[in-house]
Design a protein around this nucleic acid. Structure first.
Lengths: 241, 241
DNA sequence: CTCGAATGGCAGACCAAGTTCATTTTTAAA
DNA sequence: TTTAAAAATGAACTTGGTCTGCCATTCGAG
């Protein structure tokens, strides 16, 4: 009873170690050869575990590639928002902050290879999008109190779909070779566009698109939402802010 | 050369016949025992074809259960809308009409058992939702000309998500035992709610929900959009219209 | 320190979905 | 009737995933 939790037990450590090894080997192999071209037997062999053991740690092959792809906790963001803020304001603020923040080069590289792997495999895309589904349900649950189940479900669906699309186009741009800087700038615009559409509706798309933008009920930072060039795939440098 | 195309050739007819037989056998078995509890070998055996033949006709087990679940042709509806109508008006009109229309008892029964089968199997739900994905892409494609790729993708995503949710809740109500009449009435309300949200944005949800409803830019029929009770799961009979 | 109980890992058999391919049957047309 | 294309077949094979029984390690208590 003297020393209880050195590092939480040898057993736990070994287990964690094994999990890491499997995950690492798997991502490396997926990155090198693509999701479909790698078999779980090969992964198990390379990680020096039995197939049964591998499936002890990861329920499916997909889960090996989606390690840690939880997405943002939409429901949490909404539930924990400061008093007086609407739920859309809270979400907007969150994504605005995200777009503004920079990611360390190395992390971004790792993230991007994973995204590439995912987007190359329909099976993985499905798996990823059904991860999002759970979040949508959670968000709907929270909004139900205020708006009733049907409206809440509709809102949650719209929000989740928007954010997923946002993410998709952002990653696509990065994969197409846009610089992180460039992509970040475009993302910031798109976040505003996205939430403007959500808040004011598709009917007012003109306004959002033509940058009247008197909207933006919550504007903690000026954040001028540069008028989107959008149509030209090579935005003129004039928008360098 | 005397008789060329009696009914487009014996070959074709037999083929079609085989396809039908497989599909019919499969849906029956799925309905009886559930998607996961039926193996393709059993289906093949029951339909008196070889497994290889079965997979000649249907690429996956899922496709056997999703026969004819194409969903509505969103892109087509928008593309073929009469001049002067906005794309949202066109979609709203379509779904309004759908909600108003009645379905023959027998068809509805068949549809419902299929829906039940689908909703009982995660694998099938995934397959179904990736069917919708293609429609979303098609819709986005059409809207791109007018709004640019990003806004179009966002709009299409919101619309598709809304309509899918609409469908989901409608079916859920039917499966929970609501009468077709009752469900149809609620659906009609929800269609309006859904499009109001899309048109005017979540911020104006209050208006939509509290039934100010000065909106509805296109109103071919008065279609009074009964103020949604929504919160009470047993709508009072007063809304019998 | 030792003993017994958990626990982790293992090998291999097994199952179902789907593919491949060589072979046979059926149909269309000369 | 002959012949070539198309359809169907069955059997072997691949792959993801499960199950079972066995061995080795770790843990906790005496």
């Amino acid at each position: 009873m003297v020393i209880v939790n050195r590092v939480a037990g040898l057993r736990e450590r070994k287990k964690e170690q094994t999990r890491q090894r499997i995950a690492a080997v798997a991502s490396r192999m997926f990155a090198e050869r693509g999701f479909d071209a790698v078999t779980v037997n090969e992964i198990a062999e390379a990680a020096e575990v039995a197939k049964a053991t591998l499936f002890d740690y990861f329920p499916t092959k997909e889960s090996l590639a989606l390690q840690g792809v939880g997405g943002d906790d939409l429901a949490g963001i909404v539930a924990r928002r400061p008093a007086g803020q609407t739920f859309l304001e809270a979400l907007r603020a969150h994504y605005r902050a995200f777009a503004a923040g920079q990611m360390p080069e190395a992390d971004l590289d790792k993230l991007l290879t994973r995204v590439r792997v995912i987007q190359d495999s329909p099976a993985l895309q499905n798996a990823a999008s059904s991860l999002l589904y759970q979040q949508r349900q959670a968000l709907a649950q929270i909004l139900t109190d205020e708006y009733g189940p049907t409206a809440a479900a509709l809102m949650a669906a719209q929000i989740a779909a928007s954010l997923l699309t946002l993410q998709e186009t952002h990653f696509k741009r990065l994969l197409d070779g846009a610089s992180a800087q460039e992509a970040g700038r475009v993302l910031a615009q798109d976040v505003e566009l996205s939430f403007d559409l959500l808040e004011h509706g598709l009917n007012h798309a003109e306004r959002a698109l033509t940058c009247a933008h008197e909207a933006s009920t919550t504007t903690p930072e000026p954040s001028p939402t540069i008028c989107s060039p959008e149509r030209s795939s090579t935005p003129s440098k004039s928008g360098t802010r």
